[in-house]
C-alpha cells in the first residue's frame, strides 16, 4: 500500500496544509512567491481582493489564541471570504459533542475551509481525513506536532532579509521539546536547502533523537551562536511544562535568554525572530526584542500575506 501524504491529492496537488513535513520545496516556494504578491495588496489603501468572495472559512479554535486567530481572520477577510470564529473551548465540546460531530455540523453549514487549532497532536489530520473532498483544512497548531503557517511565515521572513536559503546557518533556540513551531521550522528549513540548522537548548527541553531531523545539537549558547545568520527564538511554554524540566525562569534566562551580549556572538548582520507571544526577560531580553536586529514585528505583518497565500492556493485547488 502506498502511504500518500495526506495533504496532497493523487496528482500531488495541495489540498490541506497540515505540516511542512514531506511537502516538496516547489510547493513551499509557490506559497512564498504567492505571499510576495499579497504583501503588495496589504500595502494598498484598499487591502481587499475578491478572490474568495462567497467562500465560508471557519476558524475552529479548540485552544485559546489571539494572534494566530486574528491573523487568519484578517487574511480571510482581505480575500473577501466570510469568516466565522468559533471559540470551541467554551462551546459545544464543553457540552459533550465530539470533534467530528462538531465538524459534521459545520460542514452542513456549507463550510469551504476549516482553520484548526487544537491541543491534541493530529487533530487537524483527523478532520482533514474526515471532511468531504471539497473542504480544505489548515492546521493552525496541533499539540506539540506542527504549526505550518508559522514556519512558512518564518521562511518568508528569512528570504526577505537573507534573499535565499543557501549558505545560511540557522539556530532554533529554546523549548524544542514542546514546540510545534520548531518541528515545522526544521522540516521547512531542511526542505528549502538550508545547509546548517542548529538547535540550542538544555537537554531537558530537547526531544529524544532530535538529530534524526537533520539538526546539529548544542547545549551552550556561546558555541551554538557562532557564525549564525538567523536566530529563531522559541517561547518557554509554561502552560506545557509538566514536572521539573527547568529549575526556574531566572536560571533559564541566565543560560539561554537572548541578551545583547549573547547576540553579539552571532554574525553582526544576524536577524532575530520570535513567533510570539514573547516572555521578555525569560527567553529574550527587551534590548534584543526591540533592537536593530529584531524582525519580530515584520514577521507578524508577513504572517497575514502568507496565510492569504495558503488560503487562496488551497481554495483554488479543487479536487
Amino acid at each position: 500500500m502506498i502511504n500518500r501524504n495526506p495533504q496532497l491529492d493523487e496528482n500531488g496537488v495541495l489540498q490541506h496544509l497540515l505540516t511542512t513535513e514531506g511537502l516538496p520545496a516547489a510547493i513551499l516556494l509557490h506559497i512564498l512567491d504567492t505571499a510576495e504578491s499579497f504583501v503588495g495588496v496589504t500595502e494598498r489603501d484598499v487591502k481587499k481582493i475578491p478572490l474568495l468572495r462567497g467562500k465560508s472559512i471557519f476558524n475552529l479554535f479548540f485552544e485559546p489564541s489571539t494572534r494566530t486567530r486574528t491573523t487568519f481572520e484578517i487574511a480571510a477577510k482581505r480575500l473577501s471570504a466570510d469568516v466565522i470564529n468559533l471559540n470551541i473551548a467554551v462551546s459545544a465540546q464543553s457540552k459533550g459533542e465530539t470533534l467530528l460531530d462538531t465538524v459534521n455540523n459545520l460542514s452542513a453549514m456549507n463550510a469551504d475551509m476549516f482553520v484548526v487549532r487544537h491541543s491534541q497532536s493530529g487533530a487537524a489530520h483527523l478532520i482533514a481525513k474526515h471532511v468531504q473532498s471539497d473542504i480544505h483544512v489548515i492546521n493552525a497548531g496541533d499539540g506539540s506536532h506542527a504549526h505550518p503557517t508559522q514556519a512558512l511565515l518564518d521562511m518568508f521572513t528569512i528570504r526577505r532579509y537573507k534573499h535565499n536559503f543557501r549558505n545560511l546557518r540557522v539556530a532554533i533556540i529554546g523549548d524544542i521539546l514542546h514546540s510545534r513551531v520548531a518541528r515545522s521550522q526544521i522540516h521547512a528549513l531542511t526542505t528549502l536547502g538550508v545547509p546548517e540548522v542548529r538547535v540550542i537548548a538544555p537537554k531537558t527541553l530537547l526531544p529524544k533523537m532530535v538529530e534524526r531531523l537533520g539538526v546539529h545539537v548544542y547545549h551552550d549558547m556561546a558555541k551554538g551562536l557562532k557564525g549564525i545568520d538567523v536566530l529563531m527564538m522559541l517561547r518557554l511554554q509554561n502552560e506545557r511544562m509538566k514536572g521539573a524540566n527547568l529549575p526556574s525562569a531566572e536560571e533559564y534566562f541566565k543560560y539561554y535568554g537572548l541578551t545583547p551580549e549573547k547576540l553579539a556572538l552571532a554574525r553582526s548582520d544576524a536577524i532575530v525572530m520570535h513567533p510570539g507571544p514573547m516572555n521578555r526577560g525569560v527567553e529574550i531580553d527587551s534590548a534584543v526584542a526591540d533592537g536593530r536586529q529584531s524582525v519580530i514585528l515584520p514577521q507578524v505583518t508577513f504572517g497575514i500575506a502568507v496565510r492569504m497565500a495558503v488560503m487562496s492556493i488551497l481554495a483554488g485547488n479543487q479536487a
Binding site: 512567491d33 504567492t34 503588495g40 495588496v41 475578491p50 478572490l51 492556493i313 483554488g316
Partner: peptide, 23 residues
C-alpha cells in the same frame, strides 16, 4: 498589473502560475 487575484475563472483554474506583484 498582475490580474490573477481578480480573474473570474479562479474557481476553475486556481492559483497555479507564478503571480507577479502589481506595482
Amino acid at each position: 498589473l498582475d490580474v490573477s487575484f481578480y480573474r473570474d475563472d479562479f474557481d476553475k483554474i486556481g492559483l497555479h502560475a507564478q503571480v507577479e506583484r502589481s506595482k
